[in-house]
Design a protein around this nucleic acid. Structure first.
Lengths: 236, 236
DNA sequence: GAGTGGTCTAGACCACAAT
DNA sequence: TTGTGGTCTAGACCACTCG
């Protein structure tokens, strides 16, 4: 583990263990430097990481403060690691509807940046949270990257497998979010009525080297759709 | 302007002027260091800023690449500077429904972290994009921070006024996102039908020093609700 | 192995906040 | 004025990718 990541983890642990609330102040930089036997830049880098993650905010001339939000029961939208890691506090299960190797749709091929005669793994799942339907998910995995999937993997955490089993590094993702009305099929899977509201999110996941490997189309049950986002002002 | 911000701006300009596409490579670090007469750390910091903003991604041992998304017509959700700066390519107008000083609701007081007998500016607007209703917005501004508002300011860009007119620095914000059905009043303002889908976002905006100053409740017209988000994997 | 980006340091100096 | 965080540098060394 790299030093500044380790420091970030320890600071975060410290915050949690001391149950620090929004606005509470952390020790000053000099103290942290001494405590972790690290240079100013390294500690700053750890703090930048935590700031990016939404755990602290830094105020010049004043100090480093804890950032907390007040509401519980919301799902973080930007975890980018699949929901399983995000939702450890919830009961998350999946029912696999379809799993096969096929040719991508034109849309999927375009997004994954592959030929239409390439192979993709197609996965269709209904996911449940605390026994309620959370979402209906259709995913296309570039088979030349995600070389193997089976029913067992797919009924659990695909992303965990991609990282640990295949040793791939996940990078960034692009999310496109829409609101609309459920069609008959979606309503059936989610246990709702046709015409009910839906949140529809398409996500294109990339590896750390920039290759897109997963194009997913997810329709959420509006009754469970409580999402949380943290924004930070970029300066540019 | 600070050096690494300036470098970031120039690199971004370079990308736009050369119309670089997703995956195209930027000059190597050493070249950039020479070009901007800056140290490695400074150039790296500029690149980190661009990475955070979703403009580039860096791959160790390989290079620095342009990150682009393919779709147009989507609104960025995390601009955090109000929509006006985000939507320069669109025609955005506002109709002010209400503007007054009043006591906050319990909910607003709680979020803004003020007493219920403090004063807030209450603003209710319908916002239009290219002549269509985009959203119905209700905002509560902590009057001890946002000391003055009038009809003219409120019918334009409130955030521009807060930054330039009042000299306040905007920091981070927390967004809570829901999907539901429009009630009669919302439907009327948005020109839709009761029971139609709605995207409902509550946002708590903070100054750079951590003080919450604006609690907003926004109901979006689902027909215009196309949002875009970029996620980056944090390591922790 | 060569190329390229990432980490880390020690220290000088700058900018903002609180008092 | 003092305390505190932010910027910037030069350079050593590390880690990953690619041919």
């Amino acid at each position: 583990m790299i030093k500044y990541q380790q420091i970030a983890i320890e600071i975060e642990t410290y915050i949690e263990e001391h149950k620090l609330q929004q606005g509470e102040k952390l020790p000053v930089l000099e103290t942290l430097m001494a405590q972790f036997k690290a240079s100013k830049s390294t500690v700053t880098k750890a703090l930048d990481l935590l700031e990016k993650k939404g755990v602290v905010f830094q105020v010049r001339g004043s100090g480093i403060f804890v950032r907390r939000h007040k509401r519980t029961g919301y799902i973080g939208l930007l975890s980018n690691q699949g929901f399983t890691s995000e939702l450890e506090d919830f009961q998350l299960t999946s029912e696999v509807i379809e799993l096969d190797v096929r040719k991508p749709t034109q849309e999927a091929a375009l997004n994954l940046n592959i030929e239409e005669n390439s192979d993709v793994y197609y996965v269709k799942r209904v996911r449940y949270i605390n026994g309620q339907t959370l979402c209906l998910e259709e995913s296309f995995y570039n088979k030349s990257i995600v070389t193997y999937l089976n029913n067992e993997i797919v009924s659990q955490s695909i992303f965990h497998y991609i990282k640990e089993g295949l040793g791939l590094k996940i990078g960034f993702s692009d999310l496109y979010l829409h609101v609309g009305k459920l069609n008959g099929e979606e309503a059936k899977y989610l246990g709702l009525k046709e015409g009910d509201p839906k949140l529809f999110i398409e996500t294109l996941f990339h590896l750390a080297n920039g290759q897109p490997f997963d194009f997913s189309k997810v329709t959420y049950n509006y009754e469970q759709s409580q999402f949380f986002l943290q924004a930070t002002s970029h300066v540019l």
